[in-house]
């Protein structure tokens, strides 16, 4: 079953520069796809379009999620809010409401599913609260449920954000640079959590990443972007450093934060092993 189906999507923020350039791609159910590329290559923009948070140009581009149109020809579809309830979004800056408790933040995942008046008054049933607590337990931070979100570490906040998408019952998780502002240990925990949700619940995951290492370790398929266009879409195993350097040219050093260009291949491997030990 097709989960995401994008065809001919363009987006221009200003007249001369295209943030997205004729993007067409499909993602099937149960896939875990990495989206890589340098800063400004359009990864976040693409993810925000799929979530219906940004509108594309009015030149015929179309995004369908679970077979329902979410936006077409630069207009958010009427049913977008309903589709959004099936899409969980995880952001780089976590986007939790810092003054609310972790549990309330996770419960907001239910807002698209419960009657509007009940959600607005924050009246959640015991079963719904249990569902949120179960999600927190799964990501391993149930002991922090009553703390305010801002009192958690970055990694814990990101796992709370994932718990929000679990509570939401999302069948597609869009993670926009979820580990870009985290330390290596927290990054692993967050990626492991996404990986578990993907394997155990058969939730489709699209995750944009800055580091190619993580893409290779966690995702079978990688989509690479440059200047708003998809320049690679295939198995992550085909992502050799030489291939990436060819693909990204002068930007390759940015993609390989852990492996500078001038280091010979052999010592680069050793360095990467070290990185694993330390994380």
């Amino acid at each position: 079953m097709l989960v995401v189906d994008i065809s001919g999507l363009n987006k221009s923020f200003s007249r001369d520069k295209r943030a997205l350039n004729n993007v067409s791609l499909q993602v099937r159910e149960g896939e875990m796809v990495a989206l890589i590329g340098a800063s400004g290559s359009g990864k976040s923009t693409l993810i925000r379009h799929i979530a219906g948070l940004l509108r594309g140009d009015r030149d015929g581009g179309k995004i369908e999620v679970f077979g329902e149109v979410i936006q077409q020809n630069g207009r958010i579809a009427r049913g977008a809010r309903k589709v959004r309830a099936d899409i969980g979004v995880v952001f780089q800056q976590f986007n939790l409401v810092s003054r609310l408790t972790v549990l309330t933040n996770v419960l907001t995942g239910m807002l698209g599913r419960v009657p509007a008046w009940r959600g607005s008054l924050c009246l959640f049933t015991k079963a719904e609260r249990m569902r949120a607590m179960t999600a927190l337990k799964r990501v391993g931070i149930d002991s922090h449920a009553t703390k305010k979100a801002r009192n958690l570490s970055g990694g814990q906040q990101q796992r709370a954000a994932i718990a929000r998408t679990i509570t939401q019952g999302a069948r597609l998780i869009l993670a926009d640079e979820p580990i870009a502002s985290l330390d290596p240990a927290s990054s692993r925990k967050v990626m492991n959590t996404l990986d578990r949700v993907n394997r155990e619940d058969n939730v489709t995951v699209i995750v944009s990443l800055h580091q190619v290492d993580y893409a290779r370790d966690y995702c079978a398929r990688t989509i690479a972007m440059r200047d708003g266009a998809v320049v690679f879409d295939g198995p992550s195993t085909e992502l050799t450093p030489e291939f990436l350097r060819e693909l990204y040219g002068e930007y390759s050093s940015e993609l390989f934060a852990s492996a500078p260009d001038d280091v010979p291949a052999k010592s680069r491997v050793a360095e990467k092993d070290l990185a694993f030990v330390s994380s």
Partner: peptide, 24 residues
């Protein structure tokens, strides 16, 4: 950003204000 987080769950406009804006 937190408001966008609430919007992404499928909440309606009023709920975005209640959960995303007012606590701030």
């Amino acid at each position: 950003e937190p408001v966008e987080g609430i919007r992404a769950t499928g909440a309606n406009g009023l709920q975005e204000v209640i959960f995303g804006v007012i606590p701030q």
